[in-house]
Design a protein around this nucleic acid. Sequence first.
DNA 1: TATTGTTATACTCTATAACTATA
DNA 2: TATAGTTATAGAGTATAACAATA
Lengths: 149, 149
Amino acid sequence: MSSLPETTDLLGGSTGYLLAMIGAESRRHFTHALNTLELRPAHYGALMTLAASGPASQQTLARSVGIDPRNFVQTLDQLQARQLIQRHPHPSDRRRHQVQLTEAGQQLLTQLRTLGERTEQDFLAPLTPHEQQQLHDLLSKLHRTITED
Amino acid sequence: MSSLPETTDLLGGSTGYLLAMIGAESRRHFTHALNTLELRPAHYGALMTLAASGPASQQTLARSVGIDPRNFVQTLDQLQARQLIQRHPHPSDRRRHQVQLTEAGQQLLTQLRTLGERTEQDFLAPLTPHEQQQLHDLLSKLHRTITED
DNA sequence: TATTGTTATACTCTATAACTATA
DNA sequence: TATAGTTATAGAGTATAACAATA
């Protein structure tokens, strides 16, 4: 399904339900855009987080992206197969793998960033810039409190 | 994974990503609450929409809930097996099934409504009532424009 | 004992193709 | 030719259990 329920339904009265539906739609929108680069959201999250925070262990990275570390192994395998990331042994802890971007991975970042921004602007176009800022602030506040637990 | 990524990550700068993550978390929260009644979100959507709009065809109902009609058949089968809904032949169109709540289904609604409200309030607790209203308005506006296509 | 990475498995959600019976 | 309901199937996302190597 690519379309959301009509506005006449009563479920739309619930903010929680709206949040779940629009969140899913946002993800679909984003997933579709990433398809042009043959990437999925988890790949995007991994690459962007690596770019932002530098080399990290798989556990740290997985938690930052919001993916279960056990399900993250395959995601990294796929990125490694495309030579976008590398796994190195951690200098002092032999259990860990230090994950980092390759040159190819870094080169992809420019495209990834513009694609991300364009896709987001496309999705949020119905809102004014001020409303977009409001939405971002409200979501940030929710996000902050939820993750504080 | 039951926890969202930390606030320090750069993905949180993207409203679209926040939307997708918090939407998923809202759904998890809601799914978990519905578990106490051995129902899933699709069941909840079907029952609440039936209560609001009265008897409807499967197609109409599926679209109102936001589920692909092909995937909706099983959902209705399960509700019917628990005798919460009934399928009747449509009086003038023999292709259609008229779906409606049973008495048991209607009796469940009270629990469903209080559970829905309590769950939503729990999730949105970090926001003030005014902020909750703001969020609802913004999401409604997005929802309306998206479904207008 | 606890943690890192891994494999295997399962369940839900979502998406699509193909069929039937009716219109 | 189009629509309503159905069946079957496949993929992505998510979750859990169990294991080896290491701390």
